Amino acid sequence: MRPLLDLRHLQLIQAIIETGRITDAAEKLGVTPSALSHRLREAERRLDVPLFTRMHKRLRVTPAAEYLAVVAERVLSDLSRAEEDVRRMNAGIQHVVRLSVEAYSNYRWLPAFIKFLKSRTEAIDLQIMASARSDPLTGVQNRQIDIAVMSGDITQPGLASLPLFEDPLLYIMAPTHRLADRRYVEGSDIVGEPFITYTKVPRPDREFARLFRPTDSYPTWAATVELPEAIVELVASDLGTSVLSNWALRTAIAEGRIVGAQVTEDGITIPWCAVLRTEDMQEDDPIRVVANLLAEWCGQTDSGFHIT
């Protein structure tokens, strides 16, 4: 059965949702507004359902368009990847593996790992999908990425994980902070402290459950900033404190811009792993090969990602 819609229809749905206006969407796609309007009417006629409704000169998305937009993102992503794969094949690359790291956009470890990867295989290229870091598990499930580097224990149907390294959480502050000379901090130390977090969703193995709740000691929530690198800059300017993973903080600590203390006397250590689809777990699958090499590379030192 021939599909009612083609790629042009999916592209226009995406463009209209992103811009909210026919004229802006047409400019984004490089067509005239009248041509885009005609294409939209054609799509609605073929489906026999409205995709957008007008309100105050803007287009409001209907549930049908929202659903098609999700499909469009997956289809267009797969098509873009296929085109990129074909181009890279001509340069001797046979496989492209897409990877993203949960929450963090610190990729100072990447050049060293790529050199390690190339020393083992020239046929696999690594593509970093930084835009997927906010929800990498969904990215793996939707095939937008192939490997998600995640913290914590990941148990979801259809997904498998390979251990990479263990990494401590650090309580970070400005060098002039009153706790800057502490080797570790306890709950009583941080009561009332301005605290910047990238998520207020408690996790059972993090500071909420293992530092704040056990002692009924809480900081003052100063801000929620979803980019850890921005949190580091705010902390360095003494605008608050935070708790983040040690591996992503080494550069800022080495430069003396922030100070890190262990979280509780015993410390809180978090496991990091490579998450991939169960169907990609065969030993000769390029995705599994990259995951295995990443685990091997991380295991060469006790510090996980080798950031220099």
Rank of each mutant, 00 (worst) to 15 (best):
D24N: 09
I268Y: 06
H9E: 06
R58K: 15
R250C: 00
L162N: 01
A252I: 06
K200M: 13
V101Q: 05
A236L: 09
R277Q: 11
E296K: 06
A222P: 09
L5M: 06
T62E: 03
I124W: 02
R88Y: 14
E166K: 15
I231F: 03
F113W: 03
E42P: 03
A43S: 11
V289N: 02
T62D: 10
A103P: 00
R182Y: 10
G158S: 14
T215K: 07
P163H: 11
P3E: 12
G158Y: 07
L234C: 03
I13D: 02
A103S: 05
R54H: 10
Q94G: 11
K115A: 15
Q156I: 14
D181P: 10
V31P: 00
L117C: 11
L4W: 07
D266F: 10
T251G: 09
L4S: 00
V70G: 05
L211P: 00
V61N: 02
R60Q: 10
R206N: 11
P63W: 13
P286Y: 09
L4R: 15
P286R: 14
V140A: 00
N142D: 11
T224C: 13
R8F: 12
L170H: 12
R178L: 07
I307E: 00
I268S: 03
Q141F: 14
A72D: 06
V31I: 04
